[in-house]
């Protein structure tokens, strides 16, 4: 399979995995392994000082996986920038999944604050992977300010509804010069395959794996679906049967010379 290249770094896997909502660190680690992923997203939270349990970070082998901190919880650009700086201080990693979600119900990304934050963070040296609604104009504006990817959502996060924004993501893929990672809302391996067949460069999955009855087995199913979808995209899909028409109403004039 061809390599995924983000900000000059090569990845063999085109599946990014979110680490939230797992029943245990062990199941999370086993799922990461089964998925074949090389990029795992993590969030930042305050330590519960009355009950400082062990950090989950120990469960993620950072030699195998690139840690991709996100800015979840940020409600505006300023909060996202603060979280980004904290994430870099905590991990030494300048990769960042930028998400700004002012609404507490659907967690839909704020396009204006995201663009503002992206512009500043790119200047501060971050490799920015912004989570966005499937908005082609926003995607181009983010590319213009120097983000490493765009990550349009397929459906509201956690809904598992599949490629509900397909028509807009088609345009984003057609216009983008940076990798397009379809994020959020992909509930089944077939949804991931659909995104990859369309020409998405990668997908990010969290809820669909973490909340499956058997997350490890589902992680492997997504791995296969992403590979199959990418291969189908590269192979060039066959069309529906072509039917020739006998008459030539449009081009007949070419023969009447």
């Amino acid at each position: 399979m061809d390599k995924l290249i983000i900000a000059g770094r090569e990845f063999s896997s085109r599946l990014l995995i979110g680490t939230g909502k797992y029943s245990s660190n062990k199941v999370m680690a086993d799922s990461l392994h089964a998925s074949g992923t090389e990029i795992a997203t993590v969030a930042l939270r305050r330590v519960d000082i009355d009950n400082p349990a062990d950090s989950m970070l120990a469960a993620i082998d950072q030699k195998k996986y690139l840690l991709l901190p996100n800015t979840s919880g940020a409600r505006d650009a300023q909060e996202a920038i603060r979280l980004a700086r904290l994430a870099r201080a905590a991990s030494g990693i300048n990769w960042l999944k930028l998400e700004v979600t002012p609404d507490p119900y659907y967690l839909l990304p704020d396009p204006i604050e995201t663009l503002k934050a992206a512009e500043i963070l790119v200047k501060e040296g971050f490799i920015v992977l912004p989570y966005i609604n499937a908005d082609p104009v926003l995607a181009k504006k983010l590319e213009d300010v120097g983000t490493a990817t765009v990550m349009p959502l397929a459906a509201p996060i956690g809904t598992n509804r599949g490629m509900t924004t397909r028509a807009a993501i088609e345009i984003i893929i057609a216009q983008s010069n940076i990798p397009v990672v379809v994020d959020a809302g992909l509930g089944l391996p077939s949804h991931a395959a659909e995104a990859m067949e369309m020409g998405a460069d990668a997908v990010l999955i969290n809820t669909a794996i973490a909340t499956a009855a058997d997350p490890v087995m589902m992680a492997e199913a997504f791995k296969k679906a992403v590979e199959a979808g990418r291969a189908a995209y590269l192979a060039g899909p066959a069309g529906v049967k072509f039917k020739a028409s006998a008459s030539s109403p449009l081009t007949g004039f070419l023969r009447n010379e």
């Binding site: 057609a174 020409g199 899909p237 066959a238 069309g239 529906v240 049967k241 072509f242 020739a244």
Partner: peptide
């Protein structure tokens, strides 16, 4: 050619 013409809205 027939295969190509059978693709709808191909990029």
């Amino acid at each position: 050619v027939e295969l190509e013409l059978s693709k709808v809205n191909a990029a």
